[in-house]
Design a protein around this nucleic acid. Sequence first.
DNA 1: TCGCTCATGTAACGTGTTACATGATTAA
DNA 2: TTAATCATGTAACACGTTACATGAGCGA
Lengths: 176, 176
Amino acid sequence: MDTRTLCLGALSLCDATGYDIKKLFEEAFSHFFSAGYGSIYPALEKLTEEGKVSCRRQEQEKRPDKKIYSLTEAGRAALVEELVNTPPREKLRSEFLVLMFFAHLLPPPRLTEMLQQRLDESRAVLKILEDLDRREGMPPGIKFTIQYGLATTKAAIECIEAYHESLPREVYGGHF
Amino acid sequence: MDTRTLCLGALSLCDATGYDIKKLFEEAFSHFFSAGYGSIYPALEKLTEEGKVSCRRQEQEKRPDKKIYSLTEAGRAALVEELVNTPPREKLRSEFLVLMFFAHLLPPPRLTEMLQQRLDESRAVLKILEDLDRREGMPPGIKFTIQYGLATTKAAIECIEAYHESLPREVYGGHF
DNA sequence: TCGCTCATGTAACGTGTTACATGATTAA
DNA sequence: TTAATCATGTAACACGTTACATGAGCGA
């Protein structure tokens, strides 16, 4: 599943510009998918060529023109087909865990710093998810992705905190 | 952080062949990193050129020759430097959650099947981790990666099971 | 006999990341 | 004045995935 499919998915929710889609990716999809402009804009162009999305140009004062994309019927069909044929995989790529795996090779202050950074980022993700969780009227599938994100992120945070508790304070300074 | 660094890491544990490294990736690293032969063998070759690993050939009867790689001092230094300079990121790529996000577009039987598949795979990961967890004498950093994997995987499984409980049984058949 | 394990590798392909380029508006 | 937001895009590069190629031994 690539950025193109995710763009179709985003447009199945509502019409949007490339810029809007990027923002959606950073909010609702942030904990399980990411893509930059470098893959979004080319994706939208290709989808337009293939007739899966249509594009209308909206002029703006004081701003560059917007290109607002809409899902076509062909696009919706392509999206559904892609979804039905995609196996429900999940792959984590964690530099953090690699670092922890080789923690014995790292200077202790670096280890502490690293744990703190990961904790900060995890808490930031948690915050985004908690905000999403407060919104109402979402389909159960979307709610599920939020619950799943909340549950796994909380588990991760607790795990890091527990590890911290186990670090000898007199060695590592104790401020965390 | 790429396959090359992970190969250095693997070789910091003990000498190994490309084949051995792949197996290590599938066991100890499976829940946070993956790589196929297509990236491991070229990585080892390049590391040899760079003097970060050395290679001795072991002839075998009845088997093709083995190439056993060892980390050099330069390689160990490169590994540590890479580790120290790598930010502790973590990125999930979940086709499963994408599918769930757009669950309202899927036929209900496909949804059920999908949940079952993910549950099976998560339980398989859990089993690997539980086996690892039984081993003794591991450095705390490695133990941590296992605990982290266990905690997040259990959270994910509980989440899927809870969602299943909420599905109306008369509609979805009730066997899960 | 079938499939798994051991063992190495190549080549094409697909995909994403990063840095660059542009530029006005607006809130702090 | 600084940084952020809005808004689009390109090009080079890095990287990983997949399929292919080879082949013997061994246990069920």
